[in-house]
Amino acid sequence: MEAASVAHAAAHDDHHHGPPVAHRSSRVEPQLLGMLLFIISEVMVFGAFFTAYFFIRVAQGDAWPAPGTHLPLEVAGVNTAILVSSSFTLHWAEQALKKGNHFGLKAGMLTTFLLGCAFLFIQINEYANIGFAPQDTAQATVFYSLTGLHGAHVFIGLVLLLIVTIRAFRGHYSPEEHRGVEVPGIYWHFVDIMWIVVYTTVYVI
């Protein structure tokens, strides 16, 4: 078998070096499609964690939050505002890039990144002061798991944003070549929307 493929490698290298360009059978960008499908998977991960929430809070009908505990609705509300605004700054950065305004891109990315960090910081601070631990009750477990799962996604999102920011500062990207900003951008928007769902289900109702 080796022999065969070597022979063919030889036979084919003389009329071209590298594969023929694939035919594009869809208008959707592969990277974009990949990210969207990945987000479907991510939604399902949250789905599973919400199943846990459902079974504890709805199916079993346990008190929410656990008796004697209290969830800081306001602080989390502020945090929500922070995260949502970061979606806008990100959008702003993308628009700037499309207009070829590289400073706008850098500024936008940087603010988005910092807002994200602020969110995460406040979240961790909340854990520190909330007054109950995941080990206490099933409700506490679900609370920490859902917010923690989301926190982990914020962290991943931040890594992606950091990469984009670094590359932006190194002068990558152009009005024509902006997929590298868009695709991670979609992920960040997803993280934001997911937080709104988590916030409403866990804190508000």
Partner: peptide, 13 residues
Amino acid sequence: LGFNFFDAGKGGD
């Protein structure tokens, strides 16, 4: 970490 997803004693399901 001693979470209680499945600890019936602590309200797990």
